[in-house]
Computed example of a mutant assay.
Amino acid sequence: MKLKIALCQMNVIDNKEKNITKAISMIKNAKKEGADIAILPEMFNCPYDNEKFKEYAEFVEDSYTLKSIADISKNNNIYVLAGSIPEKKIINETNEEKIYNTSFLFNDNGKILGYHRKMHLFDIDVKDKIYFKESDTLDHGDKVTVIDTESKIGKIGIGICYDIRFLELSRIMALEGAKILIYPGAFNLTTGPAHWELLFKSRALDNQVFTIGVSPCLNEFNNYHTYGHSIVCNPWGEVIKQGSYEEELLIVDIDLDEIYNTREEIPILKNRREDIYKLEKVI
């Protein structure tokens, strides 16, 4: 089963309306190229910055961003993974306002099929290189997300950026039937060159699935400098497409039958030893 996927590596600036206009333009161009699904980056409507997360945050019920993506998805008859946005939510029990880093999947009728709230918050401190703590502003999600598109795309597993470093999550999604794992991300100029490609190849190889990462392009005027290099890896662990630092629309053809062929040749999932995957105390 063949799919055409569009990776929208857009330039995210400090202007919500212009970011959404750019996203719409890239989705339209993706449809012209025959894409079945267009994927936007992490925080595609907002600079990657804790203060901007607060400023740009929207409630789902009246989100200008999500309404815009729903309309373009429906009008162009294309699936869209709206990378992520800062989602504002009131917790009923406490009346507390929280902000999540949330991705939304739209079908080709503009309907939200599901969403993923980033589970693992990006709290790092690499000496003399980069310090960032999402937890200063954001709250973490607590659910694994596998969405059945009920179309030829099948089941999609969704994580966001830092989520890809946690291999348990990818394995659960694969065991739940996801054939494509998508991680909108915003790695930086320290972690990107070191780990971006390696992680996507590893998660693809671990689970014999396609892995996809979509990042904003590098914008040196933003406080946080994103790595770009949006990527697709196949079930054999090979990179079949990777972008540069620049803004670009990457169109990739994949064949889901590669998953079945690879799993027949090297049956990793079938050969798991669940009977011994446990720790026991030695007295």
Score class of each variant (00 low, 15 high):
G34E: 07
M173Q: 14
K31G: 01
L250I: 14
D62R: 13
L269G: 12
R203I: 14
G185T: 03
N207F: 03
I160V: 13
K152P: 02
G185L: 08
N75Y: 09
S63K: 05
D36M: 09
L256T: 02
M10Y: 04
N234Q: 02
S151N: 10
D123N: 15
A6N: 05
I147R: 01
E238I: 00
R165G: 12
F200R: 00
N222L: 09
K4R: 14
K118R: 11
I90W: 07
I69Q: 08
E17K: 15
D163I: 03
D139Y: 15
T65W: 08
R117D: 07
K281L: 13
D49C: 10
A194M: 14
I90C: 06
I147H: 00
T94H: 05
T137I: 07
R203L: 08
T211I: 00
F166A: 07
E264C: 11
L279G: 10
Y260K: 15
D148H: 09
P193N: 06
C46W: 01
I147M: 09
N223T: 13
T145C: 14
A178L: 03
D71L: 11
H116R: 02
K281C: 06
F106M: 05
G177W: 06
R273N: 09
H140F: 14
V252R: 02
K129M: 13
M10V: 10
I20Q: 00
I158A: 01
S63G: 06
L249D: 05
P216E: 10
E96L: 11
Y245M: 07
C46E: 08
V252F: 00
L218V: 05
G154W: 04
H120F: 14
E176R: 14
Y64M: 08
M1N: 13
Q242C: 02
A82L: 08
K52Q: 12
Y115T: 11
D163N: 06
K278W: 13
V146I: 07
H195A: 14
D257W: 02
S73F: 04
N45M: 12
R171F: 11
F122C: 12
N234T: 08
L218N: 13
P184H: 00
D49A: 10
I124T: 10
K4E: 01
N77A: 09
I254N: 01
P86W: 10
K143D: 12
E150N: 15
W236V: 04
S170D: 13
F104P: 07
E246L: 11
I212F: 00
L169V: 11
E258S: 06
D62G: 05
D253H: 09
T262V: 12
I24H: 06
I156P: 00
V252A: 03
K241N: 01
K281M: 09
C8H: 02
E265R: 12
A35M: 04
M1W: 10
E93R: 11
I158R: 01
G243W: 03
S202M: 13
T21M: 13
T65Y: 06
K54C: 03
S84T: 10
N11V: 02
R272L: 15
H229W: 06
Y48P: 03
T149N: 01
D148G: 08
I254K: 04
P184A: 02
T149V: 02
H195Y: 15
I124E: 04
E51H: 11
P41F: 02
E264N: 12
A194L: 15
V146H: 12
Y224P: 00
S230E: 01
D108H: 11
E247L: 08
Y277I: 12
N107R: 03
